[in-house]
Design a protein around this nucleic acid. Sequence first.
DNA 1: AAGTAATTTTTACAATGTAAAGTCAGGTGG
DNA 2: CCACCTGACTTTACATTGTAAAAATTACTT
Lengths: 187, 187
Amino acid sequence: MKTKEKGRYHHGDLQATLLRSARVLLERDGIAALKLRAITRHAGVSATAAAPYFGNLAGLLSVLAAQGFDELTEAMSPPHAPSARDVGLAYIRFAIANPGLFTLMFRSDAINRTDAHLVTASERAFRRLAALPGPGESGTTQAATMAARWGKAHGLAVLAIDGLLLSLTNNGDTCMTLDQLVNEAFR
Amino acid sequence: MKTKEKGRYHHGDLQATLLRSARVLLERDGIAALKLRAITRHAGVSATAAAPYFGNLAGLLSVLAAQGFDELTEAMSPPHAPSARDVGLAYIRFAIANPGLFTLMFRSDAINRTDAHLVTASERAFRRLAALPGPGESGTTQAATMAARWGKAHGLAVLAIDGLLLSLTNNGDTCMTLDQLVNEAFR
DNA sequence: AAGTAATTTTTACAATGTAAAGTCAGGTGG
DNA sequence: CCACCTGACTTTACATTGTAAAAATTACTT
C-alpha cells in the first residue's frame, strides 16, 4: 500500500488521510482550525477533494466526532467490571486528554447530529456511562440518578477544558492538581 | 432621543442597537447566526459599522457574553438568602431559558476571554454560585465541594440545552418534564 | 488497446471579516 | 452667516472560506 506517495491522482487512502489531518489540526490549533481548506491543504490535496467522501465540512467533522465517541466508549471500558465512579472519572479524563475532540463531539452547530454513525456511536457511549447501577440516592428516579452522574461528569469535564476549575483552587493558597480536584469533586 | 429614525448618519445609539440585534439573531436563529454582517444588516447599518465600537466580531460577542453573565448573576440572586440548591437550580434554569446566550458565554473561541468587562462579569457570576456554604461532604476540600456543585449544575445545563437529558427519560415509559428531571437530579 | 468508471483538480461564485479611504452630519471659530 | 473640523458611518477593496459544476487524470475492464 503506497499510502503517501507523490502520485497526485488516486491517493488511495484519502478518506482516512483527511480524517487524520483534521485530527492533527484539531489537537494542534484547536477547534477554530477545522476549516475544510486547511484540512485539505494539510493533506496535500485540492480544496474540494473531501466532498465526494464527506459531502461537506459538517459531514467530515461528524465522522471525526463519531470516532471520538468510539474512543470515549473504549476509554470507559476498563478490563474488569468498573464502578460508576471509575466510568465517570474515565469520561472526565478522556475529555481532559482530548479537549478539542471532546468539544467537537458536543458542538451541535458544527456536526450533523442526525448522522447515522454518529448517532449510534454517541448512544453507545452514553449508555456505557448511564446504564450502571451506581449509588442511586433513595427516592430518586433512575433517570434522575443517571442524569445526575452524567451531568456532574460532563460539567467537570467542560469546566476543566475551559480552564475554569483551576481558577477555583488557585484563588486560595491551596495548590492541588486538576486531577486531584476532579478526584475529590466527582463522587 | 431618536432611537431608530431613518437618518442614516449619526445613528446615535448604535452600540446598544447592535447588541440588541445580535441578541435577537442569537435567540431566533442560534449561535450560527452571529455573523457580523448579519448583525449589522439587521440593525440597518453598513457591514463595518461595528468596528469603531467593538473592534471586531469577537469584541461584540464578548460584550454580549458579559451581559449574559450579568443577567445570570441577577438570576442567581433571589430576594431572600438562598440555599446552594436554589442558586444551582437558578443557574440551570437560566441556561435552559437562554440557550444561545448561555452557550455563547462559554465559547472560548468566539469571544475574547481576556476582555476586562467579561472577566469581571463572569467572575462575579462564578463567585455567586461557588461561594455558598452548601452541604459539603465530609472529608472534601472546599474547592472540591464548589467544583462538584458547579460541575453538576453546568453539566446538567449543557446537556439539557443539547437535548440530551430528555433522551434519558423518553427511553423508558416514564415521561417527565425536563424541569422535573433537573429538580430530581440536582441535589 | 480502447473504452468506461472512479477519483481528483480547476474553475467559479457567493458570503464572510476586516482594513483603509471616503462621505456626510453637527458643532465651533471667524 | 460661513468655512472648517471632528466624529460617525459608508464605500470600496481584498483575502479567506465553503461548495457546486465542469474538466482532467488515472485505473480498471473487456
